[in-house]
Design a protein around this nucleic acid. Sequence first.
DNA 1: GCATGCAGGATTTTCGAAAGAAAGATATTT
DNA 2: AAATATCTTTCTTTCGAAAATCCTGCATGC
Lengths: 247, 247
Amino acid sequence: MRVKRNATALASHEETASPEASFTAAETAYRKLRSDIVAGIFEPGQPLRLEFLRQRYGLSFSPLREALNRLQTERLVLAAALRGFSVAPVSIEEMWDVTETRSLIECEALKRSIARGDDDWEAGIVAAFHALDLQVRRLAPLGRELSVDELSALEVRHQEFHSALIAKCGSRRLINLSDQLHVETQRYRLPALAGKMPTGTRDVAFEHRQIMDAALARDADTAQALLAAHYRRTAELIEAQMSPRSG
Amino acid sequence: MRVKRNATALASHEETASPEASFTAAETAYRKLRSDIVAGIFEPGQPLRLEFLRQRYGLSFSPLREALNRLQTERLVLAAALRGFSVAPVSIEEMWDVTETRSLIECEALKRSIARGDDDWEAGIVAAFHALDLQVRRLAPLGRELSVDELSALEVRHQEFHSALIAKCGSRRLINLSDQLHVETQRYRLPALAGKMPTGTRDVAFEHRQIMDAALARDADTAQALLAAHYRRTAELIEAQMSPRSG
DNA sequence: GCATGCAGGATTTTCGAAAGAAAGATATTT
DNA sequence: AAATATCTTTCTTTCGAAAATCCTGCATGC
């Protein structure tokens, strides 16, 4: 009766087509919550009262709880026994733990991809790099601040490039872990980028090109070292930006 | 009224004491479901109908769904859009993926623990090894099949030993991942052990002692190599047992 | 004969209310 | 006045029913 689902569950002959093709209410809750936490709309540590979320998203308790439970195992949400949920806190220690773990996972995945990658793998990397490069050139020269849309467009390309690098590692688990850790790092990277963009201090595009070149040359050791350095440098910048403010 | 919780949430002056101190119904559902899946009581691939689970555990839909959602992100349960849940399937490929990922994670964690471990760390390893050794000696000499209780007691000691090795790695994430991957490997190890125990073909106790010795000698390279070989050997035995049956 | 559409039943998913706990406020006792 | 008990309020958690969806078998039309 008053149940208004946005579920058009009848297979819309193109599964990848519709962008907001969120099926169940629980899935919608999951995505919106995750996106809001990552974007920093909810403060780290902030309690996530169910009544508040119910009103904000126009959903009922059940789908919200399901989403929160999933996010709990992904370390974005903290759940206390009978005291509800809260946004997982952030700290410099956690930030380093995420980046180091991510480095470990992706370096291994990159090594395996370099060993097993075929022509499609190489083509995927080149394509992703090019798209990322275009986006960077479109936004970087302007010294101005980036809008949220521009930033997220850049983020998507960036992730797609790193994803392409490890695509042929042959391990579902490594790819999944990489995705999860990527989401976690976004919590730190997005607010840092929104704050101020110290352009010029770092040539990210060049770092990416170096990684790509080493990967295509099948030089696993160099590629791994470059990738690790790439993540370490980002973490150092974020640490520098976190330190002066909230210790 | 008819709500019968087993929640004795008032802090029972010893939090670690009571073994069945499962607080919320959702938590109970999570643990029982996980244990039943790992123990192989539910067949891999089997659909997990909610009505069936409701009757089996005496719980309502909400806590069951929450548990299933958590188990989904832990790869023990598969969730299809509007078609409910099912036990995640098993395969030789998945088995190898779990063990190799676990090897990667724990070798790194072991290396870091060896670098950072203090006296307590060493003592923890020695203690865990001793307890494991006692349990093994108590059960191994008998050629008979092990009961479920004996097997799970052994499993606990085994896990505690491996857990002690990496305890001082300094990374929450690595420890958590290790735990999760351990649960996943149990799905393969437990049925294999219950089937038949090819005792004599392998001296697991000796392998453990070697790993411990290398760790205490702070020989990271050797310890990592031994640990990786330990897991590889187990996987090979499981593969041998899986192959002839269900391909 | 084969595809297509349509009831009917089975199952998942969502809802809102009711029950249970925790935190805070007020009263009571020592 | 301090400590403890009781009441209120706020919030989480659980429940069972209602709604939406999927699946299956049957009939209908080509």
